[in-house]
Amino acid sequence: MTMISVENLNVWFGNGRDRVDAVKGATFAVKRGDSFGLVGESGSGKSTILRAITGLAPDWSGNITVDGNVIKGRREKTFYKKVQMVFQDPYASLHPRHSVDQVLGETLHLHGFSDIDARVVKLLDDVGLGAKFRFRYPHQLSGGQRQRVAIARALAPEPEILLLDEPTSALDVSVQAEILNLLADLRIEHGLTYLMVSHDLSVVGHMCDRLAVMKDGEIVEIMDVAALRAMKATHPYSQHLLEASV
């Protein structure tokens, strides 16, 4: 059962002389309930793949299939119910003048839920914050708490796929452990499929079953975590990356 399938994906920015090819011919597939990692250095195009899937990168070619539906042109409302994204910087991804209640309530309203009140409380419980955080503003929360709110917001439409764009790179190691544990628990509880971008190989090794190593917009290697742990990368670049991170 393939949940996300990306075939020969090209993403570019700009036109003519200024054209930058951010992703070149990326191909991979993620099974339902799996957790797939994308690693590489900054500028290698890993986040761009996530943005192309959600529709945040306008110029792309190739095939993207999500749960059997081929994506083309404008995405339908059902797509956003199924696919949600968590961004890197919880300091930038929450509206500074919206309380947690407004952030979650608005998302729920837009997805057509009626029992918003009960759902907000449930979501806060799910991410381990509890109802006392409901009327706080982002500046009253720590980085880890903000990322929990961002995860709660992503969970609001009851998605099947979470796209995680470096969810812990702005956090301290002790907070990172909490968030990674939370994400692992949520995946089991809700049967989610993860596509996770990270530059930290040990985080991907902890969270994912399989991963793709990217360099200059191309996927140079796809391997499973067992091979990663055994330091058995076949491509010289992934080997270099492994050595640098141990």
């Binding site: 190691v173 002790s174 990172q176 452990a177 909490e178 990674l180 544990n181 692992a184 190989l201 040990s202 985080v203 090794g205 902890h206 969270m207 975590v225 990663l228 742990r229 492994l242 991170s245 141990v246």
Partner: peptide, 17 residues
């Protein structure tokens, strides 16, 4: 702090908090 880091050589189901 040291124990809360994920490690490639020592896989664990849950990270220590």
């Amino acid at each position: 702090l040291l124990n809360s880091l994920p490690r490639l050589d020592e896989p664990r189901a849950r990270l220590e908090v």
